Amino acid sequence: MATGQTAPRVVLLAAHPNWRESRVNRLLRDRAASLPGVAVRDLYGAYPDYDIDIAAEQQQAGGADLIVLLHPIQWYSMPALQKLWLDEVLAYGWAYGPGGTALQGKDLWLVATTGGPESSYHPQSYNRYFFDAFLPPYEQTAALCGMRFLPPLLLHGAHRASPDEITQHVQVFGERLASYPDWPEMAELDACPACEVPQVDRPAVTAGSQ
């Protein structure tokens, strides 16, 4: 980082329903918390009743340069509270749509674990698809908010990963997080997309919702 340049601000959203049973995500969360400039938001710790403080979360996210989603993959997606965070915090008129520019130009990074090994994410195995098939919802969430979706950091087979594999993964994660945004591949990534939502697609709600 150039002398005098402001350090990037990072917000990490850690979502795990049971930290006591976590073999990998807990260590990743703790590694992130040890780094300067990284604000770790433990969603299940902060909101056990699922009553998210939207204003506080928007303030944190709006002030970040990088938002990290850290969680285990559950049923090919994210844990329920992480999904609720997206539903409520990424509001129309704030994160997307007319006037929704709060996150434009920022980066979104998925750091996730799977229980099944990488070989299970194959057309000839029980998960039936390569893992990339489950990424479009993340990618499009970033795009709709004008964010750049960074290459995910994944650890497959977390249930059976050896201590050495876990240690190495946590080390790579820490190094990547500490060196952001000075990643070699950054220059090759596309700019943040423009996904404009016409106002006619979201008319004012007078009674109920969809």
Rank of each mutant, 00 (worst) to 15 (best):
T3R: 09
T6E: 14
R9F: 00
V10G: 00
P17A: 00
P17T: 00
R29I: 03
D30G: 00
D30Q: 13
S34I: 04
V38G: 01
L43C: 08
L43D: 06
D49N: 11
D49W: 11
Y50A: 14
D53Y: 10
I54Q: 07
A55D: 14
A56T: 15
E57P: 06
Q58S: 06
L66P: 04
I67M: 09
L70S: 12
H71G: 05
Q74M: 13
Y76M: 09
A91F: 09
W94D: 08
A95W: 07
T101K: 13
G105Y: 06
G105D: 06
K106V: 08
D107T: 08
L108Q: 02
L108D: 06
W109K: 00
L110D: 03
P117L: 14
H122T: 08
S125P: 01
Y126W: 13
Y129E: 13
F134Q: 14
L135M: 10
T141A: 12
A142K: 07
A143W: 09
C145Y: 01
R148A: 09
F149M: 12
H156G: 00
A158C: 08
H159C: 05
A161Y: 07
D164L: 15
Q168F: 11
H169R: 07
Q171N: 15
V172G: 07
G174D: 03
E175Y: 02
A178P: 05
A187P: 06
P193T: 11
E196Y: 12
P203H: 02
